[in-house]
Each structure stands twice: as C-alpha cells, then as structure tokens.
Design a protein around this nucleic acid. Structure first.
Lengths: 189, 189
DNA sequence: GGCGTCATGTAACGATCGTTTCATGAAACG
DNA sequence: CGTTTCATGAAACGATCGTTACATGACGCC
C-alpha cells in the first residue's frame, strides 16, 4: 500500500460516505476527489478491487472505534456497551460511515457468490466480537445474534425514517427487557 | 392497469425475485420474461416507474399475506404473530420475495430525496400495522419499533449468513424476554 | 370496410460505463 | 548523466445503458 494509494483510499471513503453507494462510477468519483479514472485503475487495478479495499478499510476503522469504546467503558457505570455504541453510531461524524457500511453489506448480499467469503468472515467476526463483550452468563450465540439484530434493525430504521428518538427508546426498552430476563431461559439447549 | 401490463408485472416480479436487484437493466430483464425493452418502456413509461410499480405490487402482496396470517392466528395458542410471520418469511416460496423487498428498501434509502415519500409512507404503514396487532397493554411505539427492528435485523442476518437456526433461536429468546417483561417498564415516559 | 387504439419489432440515438493504449513528466538511483 | 520506476494525461475501445422514432400488424367499433 503506497502512500499515494492510501491517500486516494482516504479520499474515496470520504466521498462515498457523503454521496452514498448509489453512483460509484469511476469517472465521477475520480473527478470529485481530484484525480482521474485512469489513476484509480492504475492504483487499484480494477473497480471491484477498489471497492473491496474501501470496504476493508472502513471495517477496520469501525472495529478500531468499537474496541476503543469498549476499552473506555466505565466498569462501574450501568450503561451497557450496546448503548454506548448506539450513541456513537448516531453521532454526526460516524453516522455516514456506518450507513455506507450497511448499504454495501446489503449490496454484497445480493451477489452471494461474488462476496461469499467476505460475508462469512464478516458474520463470524462480529459474532465473536459480540460474544467476547458479553458477560459469561450471557455468552450464548443466540443472544449475541439477537443483540446484533436489534442494533442492525434499529439502525436501518433510523436510516429510513430519521426518527432517532423512537429508535433510541426502543433500544432502551430492549436493554430493560434484557436486564429483567436473567439468562437464556435458565437452561442451555 | 391493463391486463397485459399486469401480466408483465407478475413476470417481472418473478424474475427479480430470482435474480435479485443487482442487474435491473431493461434488456436482460425483458429478454428473460419474453418481451423487449421497447415494450417495458411502452407499458411502464420509464424504468423508474417500472421499479416503483414492482415495489408497490410486492408490498401489497406482502401486506395481504401478513393480514392473512394474522386472521388465521389461533387465538388460544401461545404462538405470537411475530413467530408465525417469521416462519412464513423463512419458507422457500416467500423468502425471495422478502429478500428482494429488503434489498430495494435499502437501495431506496440511498437516495432519500428521490424516495422520501415512499420511505415515509412505508415506515408509517408498518408501524401502524404493528401497533394494531399488539395487545393494548403493549401498544407503545417504542415497543412496536423494537419488534420491527428485531425482525428486520434477524432477517438480514439470515440473508447474509444463511444460518436460520441461530436466528430463529435468537427470535425465540426475544419472545421469551418480551413475555417475562410485562409492560414498558411500568410507566409511560 | 375504413379507422383508431393497442401491441409489438427494428433500429438507432446519445450517453456513460470499465478498461486499455500510448505517451510523457518527475524523481530516485547507480 | 543515464536509466529505471512511479505517476499522470489524453484519447480511444467496445459494450451497454435508457429511451425514442418509425413502421406494422391485430382487433374492435361504427
């Protein structure tokens, strides 16, 4: 990864966050970030590889952000990590980043054959990360899946409606429910 | 809506369900359903209008299916509507339909200005439908939002990973949690 | 039996797509 | 200084896009 390529990558991500993945034609992208389609192909070899690089870099950044939030979590406070991440996700400077990631994820799902490896790795990664963040009494794949789904679903709701308040209330209600229900119905299946 | 147009619409939906919204170019679509791009434009006036018609028809069908499930729900049984809809959504003959709807919804989100009216109407419709299906003690926008988000998030998880079993366990766990937590934390905010 | 409306085929338009070819400037290195 | 490597520009390639112009059947109506 040459410095020039890294710089182009940074600018590409900023552009895509602002414009969304609707128009990812090389020429408009290139012009917007002050270069040319010729250069994008030169540095990334193909459009597909370019998008893969963008996706990879964005996920790496997201992961770093999440780990930072986790590390900075007050161990005495009663604000769960899920709630902290939610606040982070709704912040202006992060919302676009996450929105683009969700959009590209859904787009990848449309072509399962082309992106099968990415989808699998991504899913496993997040499940493991979620599991690791859970207290041992709750460390159950189904519950971890539920956590992720609640987050995903509510974020998509906010993307579609913009109604942050109602989604946040829904999340708080979920957290309340989770606290009232001690463990996975008492027995492991 | 002429009969010919309706027939084309049916075939379009079947085609899109099978092929996903990845390639919605007129010519391949037209050829696959035994017509021509010329005819699609003739009947639907433009590609944009065609997609809007497809989306509208698919949503109408989904709504009819949901209402039918709701009507056929055993009032004495303890299987909640959410669980019944989940089973319906995972059935082979319905999964593709729902997957396409989710994909097109996410695509619409990318262009909020172009699809603002649709997004708003859709969100309101589903919230109202969910609220109406809820027992009065639970008829709270936040809880209805949470229900929708859990469903959306788990369905997207299944689309991405194919792991129906884990997602279904997660849903069951959610239902269990909801039953253990009587009302919206006891007080309205 | 003329006549308008619906349906359809052929062919083309201009635009844009990802990518390639060819050429050159700049800069680093021996 | 010569050579090699990196970076870039201009222009074009063939393909495909949504859409349109034009012509032609098919068919019901008066």
């Amino acid at each position: 990864m040459t410095p020039r390529k890294q710089e182009l990558l940074d600018r590409l991500i900023a552009y895509l966050i602002e414009h969304g993945p609707a128009d990812l034609s090389l020429r408009p992208m290139a012009e917007a970030i002050g270069t040319s389609a010729r250069l994008l192909i030169f540095h990334f070899h193909s459009k597909e590889e370019l998008l893969a690089d963008v996706l990879g870099e964005m996920q790496a950044r997201l992961r770093r952000s999440i780990l930072k939030l986790q590390a900075g979590l007050d161990p005495e406070g009663d604000t769960p990590l899920l709630r902290v991440i939610w606040g982070w996700a709704l912040a202006k400077e992060n919302f676009g980043h996450l929105r683009l990631l969700y959009a590209m994820h859904i787009l990848a799902i449309q072509d399962p054959r082309a992106h099968a490896r990415y989808l699998k790795k991504n899913a496993v990664d997040w499940l493991e990360l979620t599991m690791a963040a859970l207290p041992p009494s709750r460390r159950d794949p189904a519950f971890a899946t539920l956590l992720g789904a609640v987050f995903d679903g509510l974020f998509i709701e906010v993307m579609g409606t913009g109604n942050r308040r109602r989604a946040t209330r829904a999340l708080d209600q979920f957290i309340h429910m989770a606290r009232q229900t001690p463990a996975a119905s008492g027995r492991k299946r």
